[in-house]
Each structure stands twice: as structure tokens, then as C-alpha cells.
Amino acid sequence: MEARTGAGMSGQGDPAAANSGTTPVREGYAIDEAALAAWLSDNVEGYAGPLTIEQFKGGQSNPTYKLITPGASYVLRKKPTGQLLKGAHAVEREARVLSALHGTGFPVARVYGMCTDDSVIGTWFFVMEMVEGRIFWDATVPGVSNAERAALFDAMNATIARLHSVDYQAAGLGDYGKPGNYFARQVNRWSQQYFADEAAGRDPNMNRLIDWLQANLPQDDDTASVIHGDFRIDNMIFHPSEPRVLAVLDWELSTLGHPGADFAYHAMMYRMPPHIVAGLYGADIAGLGIPDEAAYLAAYCRRTGRDAMPGYDYYMAFNFFRLAAIFHGIKGRVASGTAASAQAARRVEVLPELMEIAWQQAVRAGA
């Protein structure tokens, strides 16, 4: 199921129903089957038609298709049609990081080929293997035993620790991003976006959080690794019957960055109320067999050779700030009439609470 993509963090509705599985190719998304089949024959080892194409429900940012043949199924990810923002929808970056990480043995889908010829199906695309397994949409992982739930969390922990331990230079990813000054650059970027969006207004918690983040940049800001950018439980495919990660999905936000920031984004689930986005805050994690936040952090530190993570609460405050800045941008689009969905309205409704929680992370870190 390597293709349930682009859903974002969800705290409302039924994301599994909305984003799992396939449908017939939707109107406006059709691709030239004959041209694609010819390209597959020339570029994908072992390909043999006839070819049937379906479209995954998820993957709205980069349209994603299931390619079905008698002997195998594949996944195709393509740029959308039309005028695109520079640097957006960079399927070639996804293909590159997937190929590099697959070469290290990290659990990702194998990429079979990348096409940069617009004449084939209209836009650039790549084809990768179809990984079958389980996707868990709820961080409390209902429907499994406590022992398996604990093992699933340990598998996630081991996987993100393994990612941050990849030698990105040896993997050919030395120019995949800008290593160093990660927090300085990110805080500046999201602060500028927040202040530029006057239609969304201002919030005192956000204002003082920005000041605090800028005044307390971590001393280890030059630390760098490959980071995923959106590492969470529903971006992983687990083995059908074992607590083992078969593939990490959705690499659109990946780059070279600070591993502590990436881990803290993942661990936000412990401090996140589920009505804002999917989270564990308020859940009986001990009763569910889920390790507590301190134990989960300690396991990651042990696996990555750290004695501790002194900047952890800063990293957490930064991630809540970043999410609040994203929601603030949604509020601006709602105010200007360019975002009218029910999900956008819910983001605006919870924004003051999210900004308060974000500031509380800074208080926890000593603000």
C-alpha cells in the first residue's frame, strides 16, 4: 500500500476511509495507458502487461496511481498538470531519496524508474514497488494486543533512529539539503510567513513564542542528518502480521536537517490533543501498553548513541510553533475566501488552543 499519501495529520473524521484504497481514475487525472505501458516495458525490469490503472484516494499533492498487471502491481507518482510553483511537487526528489535509502537497506519502496520526459504522460513521474501491509491511522492502535502495540511503537522508534544514523554523504545525499543552522533558518521562515499574513491576525502566545525561539536557538544547530519531515504512524506500512516497518511513506518534506527536530515532530503525538490532530494526549497509554514519552525518548537516544537530548523541549516548542504557523496560514486563506473546506474551518477553530499549547512547550523548556 505504498501510496496513501498527502493526507496530513488528521484529528477529525475517518482518514482511513478518506485516504485508503483506490478508485477508478478520476476525471481530469487520466493518463495515456498505451504510452505508459510502452515506457514500463522499456524501463521496468520484469514488467509484462496487460496494464490496468486505478487511482489512490490519497496522494492529492502528487497524483498517485496503482498499476496492476497479471504478475505484479506497482505505484506511480507524478507531478500534477498545470503551472506549478518552483520547487513544489518535486517527484524527482522523492525518487532520489527513496533510491538512496533503499540502497542502504532502510525500509522504503524500491524505485524502478524515473521519467523526466513530459511527452510520455504529460508530466514527470516515477514508478516504485507496491508494498503490502498494515497502515494504522489512530496513534492508539486499536485492535491489537498490548504486547503488539508496544512492539509496534518500538519498531517506529528503531526506524526513525535508523534513518538519522544513515551516512548521508556515503548514500549520495550530501547535497540533498542545507546542513547546519536548521532552527535559525526554519524559525525565520515561519516567523516571516506568520507576520506577513495580516488577514489571519496576531496572537500574543505566538508573538512571544517567536521571540523566545529566536533568542534561544540550540547550540547544536549545525547537527544534520536525513530527516523525513512528516514521520508519524500513518506514514508507515507495517508487516501484515509482525510488528515490523516494511516501508516509510511520504518523503515530500524530506531534506537534510536536525534529527532532534524530526524526532520531536514524531513525538508530538504524546502532547497533542486528538481533536487538534491525531495524538495520544489524554489517552491511557500505560493501559494500552504504549511506552511513555520519557521512555520513548530514552530508547531513541540509546539507539542513536546519545546520553540524553538536552534541547528536546526546545525542539518540541519549535514543532508546535511550526504547526501553529501552518494553521495560521490556513486561517489567512479562510479569511481571504481561498479555503472554505470543513477541515480548514476546524483548523481555524482550534488555532488559539494550539498556539497556547505551543507557548506552554516554551514554558516547559524554561521560558
Rank of each mutant, 00 (worst) to 15 (best):
P107N: 11
Y29P: 00
D313Q: 08
Y300V: 00
S336F: 00
V97C: 09
A295L: 05
H102L: 08
Y270I: 12
A151P: 06
Q55D: 14
S225M: 01
F106L: 11
E349R: 13
F126K: 04
G21M: 08
S99F: 04
A100D: 01
A139R: 09
P50N: 07
R162V: 00
T304G: 05
V44S: 07
R202Q: 11
R364C: 07
D234N: 14
M269N: 10
S145T: 15
W212L: 04
P240R: 10
H275I: 00
N181S: 14
P240A: 11
P259Y: 02
G11D: 07
F318G: 00
H164C: 04
S225D: 05
N205E: 14
R93F: 10
E54P: 06
D211Y: 01
A38D: 14
I210C: 04
Q169M: 11
G305C: 06
P259K: 03
S20N: 10
W190I: 05
A95P: 00
P259M: 04
G87P: 07
R202T: 15
Q214M: 12
P310N: 11
W124F: 10
A7K: 08
E2A: 15
W251G: 00
S254F: 02
A264G: 08
F106E: 12
K66E: 10
D230P: 01
L76H: 00
S41C: 02
F126T: 04
L76F: 00
T104A: 07
Q343F: 15
A48H: 07
Y74Q: 09
I330A: 00
T22R: 00
P80D: 10
V120H: 01
P310I: 05
Y65M: 09
G289T: 06
T159Q: 07
T140V: 05
A247I: 08
M316T: 14
E148Q: 13
A261D: 07
R77C: 09
R4E: 11
I31Q: 02
M355R: 05
E356S: 15
E129D: 15
W251S: 01
S119E: 14
G174H: 05
I53N: 02
V350Q: 10
L351G: 10
F106D: 06
A267T: 15
F125C: 03
T5R: 12
G337M: 13
F153K: 08
A298E: 13
L152A: 03
G21Q: 06
A90L: 12
A325M: 09
K78S: 15
A109L: 08
L98K: 01
G28T: 09
D307K: 06
E293H: 07
G113Y: 05
L323M: 15
S254C: 12
D203V: 05
M269L: 13
A16C: 13
R96P: 06
D42M: 04
P243W: 03
R232H: 09
V25L: 03
D313H: 13
L351F: 12
E94A: 06
E252P: 02
T159E: 07
M206R: 01
F263Q: 11
V127L: 04
I31E: 03
S165T: 10
D234F: 03
T23H: 11
M130C: 08
N188K: 08
A88L: 13
M272G: 13
R333F: 11
G366Q: 05
D307M: 05
A151Q: 13
S73P: 03
A317T: 06
